[in-house]
Design a binder for these strands. Structure first.
Lengths: 181, 181
DNA sequence: CTGAACTTTCAGAAATTTCTGAAAATTATA
DNA sequence: TATAATTTTCAGAAATTTCTGAAAGTTCAG
């Protein structure tokens, strides 16, 4: 791989991690490279730096665009497409979560809803149906929570995350507070 | 697959999803089956129901145990191992998240820390290093948050999730509240 | 229009992951 | 201790995913 060795190990590692986040090794490495590069990169540069084929890079770029993680930046006097991250690190992370929810969580919720809708009322399936209901409710709770906090501005969100379970202490006071207001 | 058809489609779907959560299709299906089954199941029953080999089930059970998602339950008068979920749906979900953090997030944080530690101070890498620092800080923030809320009891956690960004409104009142207490 | 520059496509090859099933290992019973 | 019941292991087979690179497609300047 033709990048500074300090960066290489991160790019490689990020490739491995990428596969946990819904895209394959090479796509993960491509994203890492684009994020760490101050200048936008073209397909040929990426292929060269990662030592993979031009065709593979083309497919990977398409995938990263479908995730809305990168976008093109026209370079004056050059017909090639140059790519840069579609937002800040923070925005990219939220975008990955949002996209995964759309691609994975929504279909699961739909399936569970329709299963529970058409459920026959036979005793030997009641236990399974109850578990499916619990799973549905849990996923929906997480999903709604994410949807909600995703709308917050990054600074508020950071504050919220830093507070963590400390929020619980504040919550305990909420009723009292509201009564006083 | 030898299970009620209402359950089958969920088990199959859960298998697909499982692969996004760190284990393969069959392991995902095995977990779904064990979770939906009121009675503990033995390896032979699972192999039979999913139509996979006994050896495959043995490996899958080992994996689910290493994730601490299932445990054995001795059945009087039967030498076979019978498996059941290691906790409630809620506990299993948190366990998957906790395990993934241990297996994926921690190594990434370590790598980033050591990269940033040994970073040379050469100008052409400053941008990349700054991005790595941002990624590190973001991951650490999420990680700490999760660690923290993971310690909450399920009921408080549910309340917190339901409140979502509504917490923001309460937070704005926090200083005032504390001043009054 | 023509042709050079660039990108995309996709069939087959390569790499990787998962699965099988028979043999080895383990465990309990008599 | 012998043996029957059960689980684990793992080499090779099968399935799946990813990658290559040449051909087809697109775009645009002249």
């Amino acid at each position: 791989m033709k990048v500074a060795s300090e960066i290489e190990s991160f790019v490689v590692h990020f490739g491995e991690m990428g596969s946990r986040w819904g895209f394959n090794r090479t796509v993960g490495q491509m994203l890492a490279l684009i994020v760490l590069s101050e200048q936008p990169l073209n397909a040929e540069q990426i292929a060269e730096m990662l030592g993979v084929s031009r065709g593979n890079v083309s497919m990977g770029l398409k995938e990263l665009q479908s995730w809305q993680l990168i976008r093109t930046q026209p370079q004056p006097g050059d017909r090639k497409d140059y790519f840069k991250p579609a937002g800040s690190i923070w925005e990219l992370a939220l975008q990955v979560l949002a996209e995964r929810r759309k691609r994975e969580v929504e279909p699961t919720l739909s399936l569970l809803r329709s299963e529970l809708m058409n459920a026959d009322n036979v005793p030997e399936q009641q236990y399974a149906q109850q578990k499916m209901q619990e799973i549905h409710d849990l996923i929906e709770l997480f999903s709604r929570w994410f949807d909600d906090v995703n709308k917050m501005n990054p600074e508020s969100l950071k504050t919220l995350l830093k507070l963590g379970s400390g929020v619980g202490k504040v919550l305990g006071m909420k009723d009292r507070l509201i009564a006083k207001s």
